[in-house]
Design a protein around this nucleic acid. Sequence first.
DNA 1: TTATATAGTTACCTAGGTTAATAGTTACTC
DNA 2: GAGTAACTATTAACCTAGGTAACTATATAA
Lengths: 143, 143
Amino acid sequence: MEGLFRQYISIHRLLMKQLNELLEKYQLSYSLWQVIVYLEDKGTSTLVDISNYYQVEKPSITRRVHRLQDYGLIKEVPSTNRREKIIGLTSEGKRVYQVCRKEITTLEHGVSKGLTEEEQQAAFQFLMKIQDNIQSKEGFYGE
Amino acid sequence: MEGLFRQYISIHRLLMKQLNELLEKYQLSYSLWQVIVYLEDKGTSTLVDISNYYQVEKPSITRRVHRLQDYGLIKEVPSTNRREKIIGLTSEGKRVYQVCRKEITTLEHGVSKGLTEEEQQAAFQFLMKIQDNIQSKEGFYGE
DNA sequence: TTATATAGTTACCTAGGTTAATAGTTACTC
DNA sequence: GAGTAACTATTAACCTAGGTAACTATATAA
């Protein structure tokens, strides 16, 4: 399938542009949003957890976390372990999550417009499949 | 289709990593590769053409082009219009294109492994469709 | 108790993108 | 034909986002 990548990548640009425009209204970017999503899912987490999950180096996560702390969207939660830092969403963070989640879901629907439920499922399966293929190609990362 | 974006974006990361590793061997990155591909397709071009095609601002293209000129992969071709700069691949540039094209096509096949020809076609159609949806959402770009 | 591993941070580098301003050239219009 | 407007490429300054290497502090293992 010649040109599959070109297509894929060009869509990625468009998508990120839309997402970042949406998130900009809340002083966020997609990379900050990822941290919020992770914390909403897991409740609390260390920085290393996030680093492993998104396969992004620790210093990058430190930076994201500091930004979100400055914005008051996440906070450190007390812990007995003084080496690791446990973080979680503040109530403002949870509020922002809800608002953005809604907008992003709307955007997803807009993007999937005209595709039947079956086609969307097929698309999702397709993405899963390529992900498998890429990961098995590179001596995959575990979770 | 909740989580479609997450999936899409996480694959993009993996894909770009693979592509850049591949291109690194030739001192290239995906953004430089885009310029080479465009020139291989069109023969020659101005910087504005490339800028419009990829929807990337002109200063970014200026930088890419300078890098490729330094590497000896593209060259300026004479023109009567002294305002615009017409560029094209050097013979070394064409050679590098061929080599990388081959490797990238192999990678594409690897990624599409296990998908039937019909499924690949469906996937491509799916990508086209979302592209349309995104573009019509944002007061599209021409070309 | 000493050595090793881990969590987070800091400093510095790279890639890549953007906007705003500018020089030079071409095209338009009166 | 002269003057204005539009366009091409470039530069400078700035931003996001990632990476590596080196360091501090803490926890774990031997």
